[in-house]
Amino acid sequence: MRLVSYREGGEHRLGVVDGDELIDVTAGVGERNQPGAVSPMRALLSREEPVAAFLEAFEGRRVPLDSVQLEPVIPDPGKVIAAPVNYRDHQAEMQEDFHIDALGVFLKAPSSVIASGQTVRLPYTDRRFDQEGELALVIGREARNVSVDEALDYVAGYTMLLDMTMRGGEDRSTRKSFDTFTPIGPFLVTPDEVGALDELQLRTWVNDDLRQDADIRDLIWGVPQLIAYASSVMTLRPGDVITTGTPAGVGQVVDGDRLTVEITGLGTLTAAVSSEDAVVCPTNGARRGPRPPEDVTPVRSR
């Protein structure tokens, strides 16, 4: 099953994708468009009834998929939890001394999320910005201190994410939390449709240049271990996003670039890049921190 968040008439809506159409199921979770209310997607994930059982029993009006304005698949995540250096080839290209088992996780600002098809806005004229394509998951029920064996039971579904990054010595959460720096979507795909995670392949293009080509099985910490660890640090709640880290092939993006991420069975995430209204950076971390290669790491042959 594939779910989308979208806007219609100024309201947040929720749909189930069926071919070239979507079935609007917003009414089934309540018209939650009052100030301070959670999005329909968050409301759906917070229900005690299993998501699939509810959606299969609900009949809503049909809308052409290409006629709606997509929103981030989770427009209002409570948290965006990110995994630093979770592929060994990315560790090598960044010349990092440590990877995730020494670094733990970090947080991105929920306000940084945008929808597939929207624009990443580079804030500064004098800093380097890179693309990082990633597999992400959305939590479906509250989780605290869950085991690795039980971790996947807490996943509502999977999606794609671009972890846009300013290079430098500032804290990761700062360099990755600018508004528009987390394109996510377009779909939330339920685990039954995704299948075995080890069989998924991730590819990222900048314009027509294939920059990243990786197998999800190459994660240092796989999805279950990542969920288990995150839940030992903080309580995970429905609608929280965990993104699993990026493989080798990160590289600089500039004004006018087109970004595309594809993961097996999850669809296509796109974003444009703009430097309109960029200014000079007020911090001086440009010459600090991990040093990415000047040239993009070549995509390995298969």
Score class of each variant (00 low, 15 high):
F129E: 02
A136L: 03
E193L: 08
L269E: 04
R288Q: 14
M94K: 10
L107S: 13
V68D: 10
G195R: 13
S116R: 03
L210Y: 10
P64F: 09
T182E: 05
T244V: 09
E31Q: 12
L152C: 10
W221Q: 06
S274T: 14
L14F: 02
K176L: 01
P290V: 10
L122W: 03
P72W: 01
G19N: 10
T268E: 15
F106Y: 15
T180L: 00
P298T: 12
A115S: 14
D97A: 14
G19E: 08
D76A: 12
R288W: 05
A230E: 02
G117V: 10
G19P: 07
V63A: 07
V189H: 04
P282C: 12
A115Q: 03
P75M: 10
R167E: 09
L161Y: 13
V296T: 15
P224W: 05
F129C: 14
V105A: 13
A272W: 11
I227H: 02
I139C: 05
G267M: 09
N207F: 02
T119Y: 08
D209S: 14
G245D: 04
A92R: 15
D18A: 14
I74A: 06
Y6W: 08
Q225M: 11
D66H: 12
I100W: 02
D208A: 06
A230P: 02
F106G: 10
R175D: 10
K108P: 07
P293Y: 00
L152Q: 10
V296M: 12
G267P: 08
D163M: 03
V138L: 02
F181D: 11
P35N: 06
V73D: 03
D255R: 08
L226Y: 03
P64E: 13
A278H: 07
Y124S: 11
F187G: 06
P75C: 11
V16P: 06
P293W: 00
V241W: 03
N33T: 10
T174P: 00
V120I: 14
P123D: 06
E56R: 14
E96G: 06
G9S: 10
F58W: 13
T264V: 05
Q34V: 11
L3W: 07
I139Q: 01
V206H: 01
I220Q: 09
S231D: 04
G19V: 06
I263L: 09
P186I: 07
Y6G: 07
E96F: 09
G157W: 00
V85Y: 03
A82H: 08
R128K: 14
Y87E: 11
R121D: 03
R217F: 02
G157F: 01
A52E: 15
G60V: 02
A151L: 03
Q131F: 12
G60C: 05
E56N: 14
V138F: 03
T159K: 06
V148Y: 08
E150G: 04
S177D: 05
G289L: 07
T235M: 05
R128F: 00
Q69M: 12
R7L: 00
L266N: 08
S147T: 15
S231R: 06
E93L: 01
D240R: 04
L122H: 03
E71D: 15
L259I: 13
E11A: 15
I100Q: 05
V254L: 13
L65I: 05
V38N: 14
M41L: 12
V279R: 15
G245K: 01
A57V: 05
E193V: 12
G60T: 06
R127C: 14
V138A: 04
L3S: 09
A286T: 13
D130P: 01
I74L: 11
